[in-house]
Design a protein around this nucleic acid. Structure first.
Lengths: 331, 331
DNA sequence: TTGTAGGCGTTATCAA
DNA sequence: TTGATAACGCCTACAA
């Protein structure tokens, strides 16, 4: 017990005993067992963050913002990777739960088994915040960029430039955020009485196994190739994210066409690479740092707050960043 | 006790009781406490990975390889970020130690307090493997790319192309891996009787606070600007990594000079962006995935192995990837 | 097939 | 100022 007082640094211990204890600690290489400590105290001051595509600068910026916010409050962050769907999601949640983290932030795509596990977790009073994962539970907070408006703005921008045949690359019906971007695209077309042509909406390519890391670029590449082989190819393209846009740009170049003269293109996210492409990529900037910070703050409120908070939702504005790849107004 | 048997799924339980237990588990939202379990069992089947610059694709590829290797053996991975030196290193190590991970892989730059903490950890029998962190301890394994030979090859390549005034950008005396690259550069020059000109070796710029994220690019930009202002500027540059090289390329372009005609440039790492730059970047490819995999394997051997293993070292070959930025042989 | 006892290493509480 | 006791929730070993 006296040792505990010395090591924890609180409670009355005489200077003499304190020194004796510290000496013994050194000699015996004693280290206080955190598991036992947490077991007794019932909290760990640790938060888990589950990330999907860790290769995407979007994820890493998010993680940095989350971590900074937590650190200010003395909380530690453990990041878990879950790259390929439900099974890995569950492994990640389970391992965080087994370590009794005080709360979890999820930034992977929604899936049934994962959602179920999360609900169970919340029911055992583990605070959870979701970033961009459509998951409606009365006690799970939700943070997301405004994908609907972002998709709308991107498409509107292309329409304003005089385009009528505008394609969407990388539709994924299983991803809510993606679906919102697609919906924004459709809304913009309809608002300008441009018919929605399903052949101009490409989804996930058959041959591509995962949608992780730079493989999303392949989706853009393959999708664009298919669009270019249409009898009446598009004059503009809105890609579901910057990596996909970059893949599409490669396909356009390889076909001997020019951006933006032959085909204009807009992405989503504004990863650092977007500004450096040549031509530089017009894109919808997502407030990654704000998303991370707000999610962390919400989680901390749930962790430290006494009261049971019910579901809150924060949809954050995106900003259209016009660069070279969308070009000037067509005649 | 019967509950434990049901939940763990081993030991004899009658079908009838099992069902009753499972029903109660559901109703009460019971979840087995992992802390208590680990406290009793004395292991967690979890490994910690401490990463410095998470924005660098090098780190994320490493993490993915580590994770895949661990997962095969049923181990989970927790990633901690330590962006700015000793203090954060210690926080990360401490928090992993408090959660009783079974082992730690460190991939941050060496620093005194961090090294000391790691040594203490090892002395309490926590297995540790270091990636690229120069840290000599009799029980800490070491994995690293061959920075010396990589630096030599890069410089040799530029010499072979006919260059005599070759600069090094981004020297950092506190980073061992960086120092090795610099040493390789010097070795190559000396072997060809080219005098080493200290003015051609730029270090860290004053104004730049951190060396994290895309800030390393600033180092390249600032360093190159200084080199260009010399009375007798270099005709070729070897940058300490790809981000630094990319920053240097930007400075060269802004000065109205052409790569590789006016100045040739070589980087280090071969991040995905290197191949896409225009001109594409000649660089020394680092075997990121192999580094991660080998580090994870070594750690698992220490964790599961009964015997005390003494320090092992694995230096992995790098490969010079010649692209456009180094150009053709000069006349 | 089920249940009891003891201990993993802490800390809260109370006693000395 | 220090120490004894109990409890955090689980699992091993043994008893019923």
């Amino acid at each position: 017990m006296t040792v505990s007082r010395v090591v924890s640094g609180d409670g009355y211990v005489s200077e003499e005993t304190r020194e004796k204890v510290l000496k013994a600690v050194k000699e015996l290489n004693y280290r206080r067992n955190g598991l036992a400590r947490s077991l007794k105290r019932q909290f760990t001051e640790t938060v888990g963050l589950v990330l999907g595509d860790i290769s995407n600068p979007y994820s890493t910026e998010l993680a940095r913002a989350v971590r900074e916010t937590l650190l200010e409050q003395g909380f530690n962050l453990f990041i878990c990777i879950s790259e390929s769907g439900a099974k890995e999601d569950v492994i990640a949640f389970e391992s965080l739960a087994n370590h009794s983290v005080d709360g979890i932030i999820v930034a992977t795509r929604s899936n049934e088994a994962g959602d179920r596990y999360l609900s169970d977790l919340v029911d055992t009073n583990v605070p959870v915040v979701a970033i961009g994962r459509d998951l409606t539970h009365k006690n799970i907070d939700f943070v997301s960029p405004d994908n609907l408006k972002g998709g709308f703005d991107a498409t509107q921008h292309l329409i304003d430039l005089g385009h009528k045949r505008i394609a969407f690359i990388g539709a994924n019906l299983r991803s809510g955020s993606n679906l919102k971007r697609l919906q924004g695209y459709i809304d913009a077309l309809e608002q300008h009485d441009i018919p929605v042509d399903e052949r101009l909406i490409t989804g996930r390519s058959e041959g591509i196994a995962d949608e992780v890391g730079y493989s999303t670029e392949e989706i853009g590449f393959e999708g664009m190739k298919r669009l270019l082989s249409l009898p009446d190819p598009p004059t503009a393209v809105f890609a579901r994210n910057d990596f996909t846009a970059i893949g599409a740009m490669r396909a356009i170049s390889e076909a001997g066409l020019k951006i933006p003269n032959d085909i204009a293109i807009v992405g989503f996210d504004d990863i650092p690479l977007a500004a450096r492409m040549s031509p530089s990529l017009t894109t919808v900037r997502q407030p990654m740092r704000a998303e991370g910070q707000i999610a962390a703050e919400m989680l901390l409120e749930r962790i430290t707050g006494k009261a049971n908070i019910s579901r809150r939702e924060r949809i954050l504005d995106c900003e259209l960043i016009v660069r070279e790849s969308s070009g000037h107004r067509r005649q």
